[in-house]
Design a protein around this nucleic acid. Sequence first.
DNA 1: ATGTCGAAATCGTTTCGA
Length: 281
Amino acid sequence: MLIATWNVNSIRSRLPQVQTWIEEVKPDLLCLQETKVDDPFFPKSEFERIGYQVSFHGQKSYNGVALISRHPLTDIRFGLSGELSSDSDAERLGEQKRVMSALVNGLRVVNLYVPNGSAVDSEKYLYKLEWLNCLKHYLEAQAERDEPLCILGDFNIALEARDLHNPKRLTGGIMASPPEREALKKVLGERLHDVFRLFEPDSGHWSWWDYRSGAWDRDRGWRIDHIYLSEELLQNAKSCLIHKKIRGNVKPSDHAPVTVEICWPPEEDENEPINSESFRF
DNA sequence: ATGTCGAAATCGTTTCGA
């Protein structure tokens, strides 16, 4: 099963590129962030035409997440509500459309667009930390359901020095400050593992390059788009790739897609009866 | 050098957020 995450920075601006990439890579599930479109205007039929089911949770101008799937999506959930400590938290944090989840092939996928945070100690930064704390509670409640878990998306956090092109200069700033990193580590707990690092220990692998300052031409990137898996999925992971060349497109998103290949469901039982199709006549 | 995008309103230029 091939699962992908991509912050597209407006699905309407990026539609041709997303369609081309889907036809090329054929992901089973594509999780989008920053769709920047209210639900009535999501280009749903553009994906249905190529054999995908679509579900989305968006708003005008900002944020917005979507799931594009070749397999049935069930038990689709929107936002962090239902798992929060109070109704007022749910209402306040639900205004920004940043989370949706679904069951696909028996695994729970949680698609996230973590707040950017603007600048350390700003109002938006405090919101980001608070939001991550709510996400932690949400995932703790989720854990009781005992489903194999994949959480992925744009985390707007580089967890370690090797995830930054210039750790000396950038560490301590937004997306690389100790409080953000600690908050994310608490979200992950003991259960969730960064599948990219299972295959690639080295620095120099980025998923986001700022549009400004010639960051792409100078390869000054950050690794802030992540895929985290629970143990049973991690054991069956075959690869995790950053599709860097997509960032070199004409009119690109500032993020590249990231994919994980998981052997899932884990193994076909050889003793199981053969497909009933064979008995048709 | 906060240097570029995308969206929307204050609309053919500026603002906000990233």
